[in-house]
């Protein structure tokens, strides 16, 4: 029982990270109908920026942890947004209305490029850091097992909830959100009504990148080690989460993220840790075949 509760806590934490990345996939898919293969790499870059800013703040002697974390959060969100914006501007915008496979191939090229760019600039070795947020609460205790909820886990789940609430508000209530939803429904009509479609799409990428960078920062803090390759697996799993939740749906992405996080954690805890990535991929295939609209997605009507 205690073991189960501990895995539940771990799964929710991991799921929050996947969920934050998945939102980026889902928003971009909603607005331009394509998978942004480079999104996982933007997450990885966000993690690197967070790591680097942490190191710089540390060397500057900032010891008040909450302030340091806030600065890191803002810096990595801002700088990763520039990456998200640039990816869209360079690799996707010129290809709108092009040959069907062109944007996909361009996206894969972008993903390969970003991965190797970071590998060359930052080196291929893993980057470990000292834990920043320590300690936790003991939730349950039994003679041979102690269930702890670390402060880091609390921080991750709370930040995720806050960001979710903020972004849901943004989409539901603000002019930007309305424009975004309008572009999702009908891009041509939206542009005829005076919505700057290019700007709206750019902003979608910026928001997705910002959320992914938060996930990246959490990842660094939680696992304490990153390398240039983390974007690949995290990206695929977050994409699975977006599909499972119903691609195009924000709450769906979050729900899918949680489920994937839980499945992966429990799989590793009760079955074999070697095959945990296989589990995620298998779920992806099964969902796409048997539940293509996902849990909370709308059915897609083929335009003929």
């Amino acid at each position: 029982m205690e073991y189960f509760v501990q895995q539940l806590i771990n799964g929710v934490t991991l799921g929050s990270i996947y969920g934050l990345i998945a939102i980026g996939y889902t928003m971009v898919y909603g607005i331009i109908g394509m998978i942004n293969f480079a999104h996982g790499d933007v997450f990885m870059i966000g993690a690197f920026i967070a790591l680097i800013s942490l190191l710089i703040l540390g060397s500057l002697g900032l010891t008040f942890i909450p302030l340091a974390l806030l600065i890191v959060l803002i810096v990595s969100m801002l700088l990763s947004s520039v990456y998200g914006w640039t990816v869209e501007r360079v690799a996707y915008r010129p290809l709108r209305g092009s040959f069907r496979l062109a944007p996909l191939i361009s996206a894969i090229g972008m993903s390969i490029f970003l991965q190797n760019y970071v590998q060359i600039a930052q080196g291929a070795r893993v980057k470990p850091i000292q834990p920043v947020v320590n300690g936790g609460i003991v939730v349950m205790e039994s003679p041979n097992f102690v269930v702890t909820l670390s402060y880091m886990q609390i921080l991750i789940v709370l930040t995720t909830l806050a960001l979710m609430a903020g972004f849901s508000y943004l989409i539901a209530k603000t002019a930007l959100g309305r424009q975004q939803r309008a572009c999702e429904q009908d891009r041509r009509m939206a542009s005829l009504l005076g919505i700057n479609v290019d700007r709206t799409i750019s902003l979608t990428f910026v928001m997705g990148a910002a959320l992914a960078s938060v996930a990246g920062m959490m990842f660094v803090l939680y696992y304490g080690v990153i390398d240039f390759f983390i974007g690949f697996l995290a990206g695929v799993k977050a994409f699975t989460a977006a599909v499972l939740g119903g691609i195009g749906s924000m709450p769906g992405a979050m729900l899918g993220g949680l489920l994937i996080g839980l499945i992966e954690t429990f799989w590793s805890a009760y079955f074999t840790i070697e095959y945990k990535d296989v589990a995620a991929f298998s779920i992806l295939v099964l969902v796409l075949i048997f539940l293509p609209t996902g849990l909370l997605g709308k059915p897609e009507i083929e335009k003929v």
Partner: peptide, 15 residues
């Protein structure tokens, strides 16, 4: 630089 160049070339050629 090989894979860097491959990735970049894929994007540029598509454009």
């Amino acid at each position: 630089y090989r894979m860097l160049a491959f990735g970049g070339a894929m994007v540029l050629i598509m454009i």
